[in-house]
Amino acid sequence: MTNSDASREVLLDVRDLHVTFGRGRKAFEAVRGVSFQVYRGETFGLVGESGSGKTTIGRAIMRIYPPSAGEILYKGERISGHISRELDKKVIREIQMIFQDPMASLNERAKVDYIVSEGLLNQRRVSERERRALVEKALQEVGLLPEFASRFPHEFSGGQRQRIGVARALIMEPECIIADEPISALDVSIRAQVLNLLSELQKEKNITYIFIAHDLSVMRYFTDRIAVVHLGKIVELADTMEIIGHALHPYTRALLSAIPMPDPDRERHKKLTVYDPSVHDYQADPPFWQEVRPGHYLLANAAEAERWQKEAEID
């Protein structure tokens, strides 16, 4: 992969995004100034622990939460705040979401047929015949049989239900899919199936993914670039292999050291790194967003950036 940003089309541009819940003295800022760009056709990973704000970022892009400051551009057009009805419709169609728990995200009272085509009904007039054909096509694309359309969600296993969730997104012919922990609620043997399905669809349709997860081992396998989120800020952003091989921020390194590997010898001699936020001296010397290597961004002050880079060379 090259880093010549100019040659790649920016699909999504998040600029200094803030999201605040509540107001006045109870206000809580879940996302505190996040900027990143997502290129067309790539898989962009947002990784962090629970409470880091990674899901909130995803939902702000989906326009579920309004940003309290900053803006989000999609294909160069602003999609945050008040936008025209047409653009609204377009964005709803082109950016779709896949949820974490397939047991909770499907309407238990509706048949698969309705669940999959619901988004379509809100978008445009489709004839009954066309609708059925589209549902059938979407189900086939995710590896389900067309006759499943007349069944209810409870008749399916977790992996199949997650496929229904993917079909529901696909029927809209999206350009970008935000997948929020799409495999963490699934059984180990099913995880690989869903990951394979997502990458096949990407190859076929050139879909851009924003992949949200807490687990760097899945990220390493699945994403092109990774942004590490900690307490509402991105602390490090780089190509996946760069993050895995040359992580600089101590939080990223702590996350990496926690990946459980199926290798007993290595696991038993592993040194566990624990991230302690008090190592930063940000009172006197505040951190800033800097490019330390081509395409590798880091939130740090000058002294830290230099020290961490030296440490990384020794390792």
């Binding site: 180990v188 043997s189 690989a192 199936q193 081992s217 390493r220 699945f222 990946i259 459980p260």
Partner: peptide, 20 residues
């Protein structure tokens, strides 16, 4: 075999994961 080889930890980017 199947359980071990379906782990994303062992997968390579761009290659298909083994599934059961």
């Amino acid at each position: 075999w199947a359980l071990l080889s379906s782990l994303p930890q062992l997968g390579e980017r761009g290659e298909e994961l083994a599934t059961i």
